[in-house]
Write a protein that binds this DNA or RNA. Structure first.
Length: 273
DNA sequence: ATTCATGTTGTGAT
DNA sequence: TATCACAACATGAA
């Protein structure tokens, strides 16, 4: 799950804020029973990470860190799936299920160490600070840069591919090949796509707006989309060989708008990440 | 049946 | 010391 999906989850969890944990289940190896009787005191996010703070009248608070990685999912106030949840929390007013995610307790110090200025979804997001950090990343390819959580916390493979297409730049372009005056446009492209992602997902319209990610035809020029593993961690990367041609790098950098693809017969799944 | 994928973290080798 | 390769985790869709 990418950052915008975590923000949506945090909003869906608001109904449990201030509520007491009545029952705990799940196959996590963390000391889950310690949560019983505590009150959900805070709900925070940083990039793709969810932090829940559980307070107690006399004992210290417990901060949990949840990361959904590739396959994680959640359900709220729905019948439990056949499989065991990693963690299941029963409140007076409902139940939360977290599936196949990574959960760690005692995350207070870790949470404090994170910088909200690089969290693309945070109100404290600070593009000037990000631009400053980018100076140390000159030799990085854009496909790696756009996934770097220390610069763009919350950006994931969808954001990477779509933002690069909206900029019409090839993923294997090095940051140093982009004129410094255009760097803020790179930052802006990621920020804007994250917020579009957030809105589209809430309306179950995210897939409809994919231009290249898991697509076969470029919506702009009709070329066949190429899929190739690229960058440091060989993540799947989708490009239009015409619109994102390396030779375009001499052209002015422009952030193009996204048009929904109308003929897409794909049905939007509510449970999509 | 097999492959792939909205990701991170830890370990041991280089 | 830094970087790298690889494993581990976990599940549903194509």
């Amino acid at each position: 799950m990418e950052g915008p999906s975590i923000v949506i989850l945090s909003e869906e969890l608001q109904e449990f804020l201030g509520k007491k944990v009545l029952k705990v289940r799940g196959n996590t190896k963390q000391p889950k029973d310690d949560l019983k009787g505590r009150t959900l005191e805070r709900i925070d996010t940083w990039g793709k990470v969810l932090f829940l703070t559980f307070s107690h009248k006399t004992l210290p608070s417990i901060v949990t860190k949840t990361h959904f990685m590739m396959f994680g999912s959640y359900r709220i106030n729905e019948p439990r799936e056949n499989r065991d949840p990693r963690l299941e929390l029963t409140f007076k007013n409902g139940i939360v299920y977290f599936y196949s995610c990574s959960i760690k307790f005692g995350a207070e110090d870790y949470q404090k160490s994170l910088d909200p200025r690089v969290d693309v979804l945070s109100p404290d997001w600070d593009p000037d600070h990000v631009l400053m950090l980018m100076k140390k990343k000159q030799s990085t390819y854009l496909c790696d840069l756009f996934l770097d959580q220390s610069l763009f916390a919350g950006s994931g493979n969808i954001v990477k591919n779509e933002a690069l297409f909206n900029l019409r730049r090839h993923p294997m372009t090095k940051l140093s090949e982009i004129s410094k005056k255009d760097w803020s446009l790179l930052v802006h492209a990621i920020h804007e796509y994250c917020f579009n992602f957030y809105e589209w997902k809430k309306e179950f319209q995210l897939r409809r707006h994919w231009q290249v990610y898991r697509k076969s035809i470029c919506p702009v020029c009709g070329s066949k989309i190429q899929r190739k593993k690229m960058g440091k961690n060989e993540r799947a990367t989708f490009i239009c060989p015409h619109c994102q041609n390396e030779r375009n790098s001499k052209k002015e950098l422009i952030l193009f708008e996204v048009m929904p693809i109308e003929d897409s017969a794909e049905r939007e799944e509510r449970l999509d990440h």
